[in-house]
Computed example of a mutant assay.
Amino acid sequence: MAKIEKLALAASPTDKAQATAKKLSQAHDFVSMAEADAVVVLGGDGFMLQTLHQMIEDEHILPAFGMNRGTVGFLMNKVEASRLPILDRVNRARSFEVSPLMMTAETQSGEIVSTCAINEVSLLRETRQTAKLEIKVGAKVRIPELMCDGVLVATPAGSTAYNFSANGPILPLGCGLLALTPISAFRPRRWRGAILPDHLPIEIRSLDADKRPVSAVADQREIRDIAKIRVEVAHERDLTLMFDRGHSLDERIVGEQFAI
């Protein structure tokens, strides 16, 4: 990556993030997103996802260096990890490419909605009735009828989030794989999910949708009363996350698998 000379700053509205923004702004002259080579993001994982989604929507994608002013901070660096000036710290960071998912959803009324997800796309039952879903991977129907609370497709960056809580696998960055994970599968009861090459599109169709309605959620955006969705990797919208050396995302992904 070319040397970064101009930084933008994005901070969540929390007191903690705003206090850090004020301190950084006293030591560095930040520029607008339009002028910047990279953006420093202050907040938690939710605010980082919000910032990344906004850059995708604006079609102006910058490398993002997160500093944790939230709770978990899996996608963020520790604020206290370095005494270097922020520009030097960003230039010394390691960069990781993160490929978002593109979900194209069709509702029961025929509306078509397309949106990106950086962590996961999930299909969830809307009522007490178990969802009935057909799972197609590539050109082949793999599960004609899955009865469950839902199912999700997770990227490597998102594999430690909802996917991991649903007993899905943790995927290393750069592996070229996606996790397809059921949520409380009832039938087939023994199916625990699949690890799939990310070049294969995944299509999920709601069976008996009138009686068993389902909603689709792409990160934080929900679309209700789904007939079917198609999920595929959107490499044309690849994102870059930056991490301090020794505190990189790939190490966190490995570490999460040994957390007790």
Score class of each variant (00 low, 15 high):
183 I>E: 06
124 L>A: 00
136 K>R: 15
239 L>D: 01
152 L>T: 04
225 D>A: 12
206 S>Y: 09
242 M>T: 07
236 E>Y: 09
127 T>I: 10
149 D>C: 03
136 K>G: 00
157 A>G: 00
153 V>Y: 01
238 D>T: 15
150 G>R: 00
150 G>Q: 06
114 S>P: 02
191 W>H: 05
170 I>A: 15
169 P>E: 04
174 G>Y: 01
238 D>R: 09
154 A>F: 00
213 P>V: 12
245 R>H: 12
137 V>M: 07
208 D>S: 07
217 V>R: 10
210 D>I: 09
117 A>L: 11
188 P>Q: 08
227 A>N: 13
175 C>V: 07
178 L>F: 02
227 A>H: 14
155 T>H: 12
224 R>V: 03
174 G>M: 06
222 E>D: 02
118 I>W: 00
196 L>Y: 05
118 I>Q: 03
112 I>W: 04
214 V>K: 09
213 P>A: 15
245 R>Y: 02
156 P>R: 04
224 R>H: 14
141 V>I: 14
184 S>F: 10
155 T>F: 05
120 E>R: 13
158 G>M: 13
161 A>W: 15
188 P>C: 13
168 G>F: 01
190 R>H: 14
169 P>L: 10
115 T>N: 08
230 R>C: 02
173 L>C: 02
197 P>K: 01
125 R>C: 11
229 I>S: 07
190 R>V: 14
157 A>N: 01
139 A>G: 12
119 N>G: 05
167 N>F: 06
184 S>A: 09
200 L>M: 12
